[in-house]
Design a protein around this nucleic acid. Structure first.
Length: 214
DNA sequence: CTCCCGATAT
DNA sequence: ATATCAGGAG
């Protein structure tokens, strides 16, 4: 189904974006700690079904131990599994990180590629991870659909889809391009503080009036 | 669709 | 005890 956006819908969207800008940061600063593009790539791979706080604890030691992409490419899988154990899914993540690092070196000269197609050709890198890299590293307008963006975008009536890729396309039509990267960061902040998955603090929410509710 | 999976809040 | 966390692959 093709989504159409009417003028009144656009005005409602703009009100929500204004309120988000008013209450949350306008910086393209993500919650995962990193120094280099490849460090962000690994941090995002580790972040699957894991809190960013946990990932930051793990990567602090991890990036002290493995200084380069080559170090990850040559890592012993069992040892890397142990190093990232607390993030969960550690066998898949360790295997993917090693394969990803090898391909970064063999195909992309050790650099993190820029296009969605190139990024998703890397092991452990799907659409969500690729879009984080495109937005945060290359400043390319991109929409990241994670668990918070999915839940809250549906509550706000921006989409009725379940599939993250379809949600991404709906949000592209609903949101002005200048807000694509920022939206994700602000919604995560909102999803962690007020619009939580379990007991959302609707009474305290500044979007209460504009929310389509459950 | 299922599996991968530990840590934390409720 | 259970839901949830910056998902991805087979």
């Amino acid at each position: 189904m093709v989504k159409r956006v009417t003028k009144t819908e656009r005005e409602r969207v703009q009100k929500i974006l204004d309120l988000l800008d008013e209450h949350y940061t306008r910086e393209y600063k993500c919650y995962l700690n990193y120094e280099t593009p490849w460090q962000l790539l690994i941090a995002v791979i580790l972040s699957a079904q894991c809190t960013d706080a946990r990932v930051n604890i793990v990567t602090k030691d991890l990036f002290q131990k493995y200084h380069t992409v080559e170090a990850f490419a040559n890592a012993e899988q069992k040892e890397l599994e142990n190093d990232i154990h607390s993030t969960g899914f550690y066998k898949n993540k360790a295997k993917n990180i090693i394969l990803c690092a090898k391909r970064l070196i063999e195909v992309y000269g050790g650099e993190v590629p820029r296009t969605l197609e190139e990024l998703t050709s890397l092991a452990g890198v799907g659409r969500k991870t690729a879009n984080v890299i495109r937005g945060n590293i290359y400043n390319e307008p991109s929409i990241v659909v994670d668990t918070h963006v999915k839940r809250i975008s549906r509550k706000l009536g921006f989409t009725k889809e379940e599939d993250p890729e379809k949600i991404e396309y709906d949000l592209m039509k609903v949101l002005p391009k200048e807000h694509w990267i920022l939206y994700n960061i602000q919604i995560i902040t909102h999803g962690r503080g007020l619009c939580t998955a379990r007991n959302p603090k609707c009474e305290e929410c500044f979007l209460r009036e504009l929310c389509k509710e459950k």
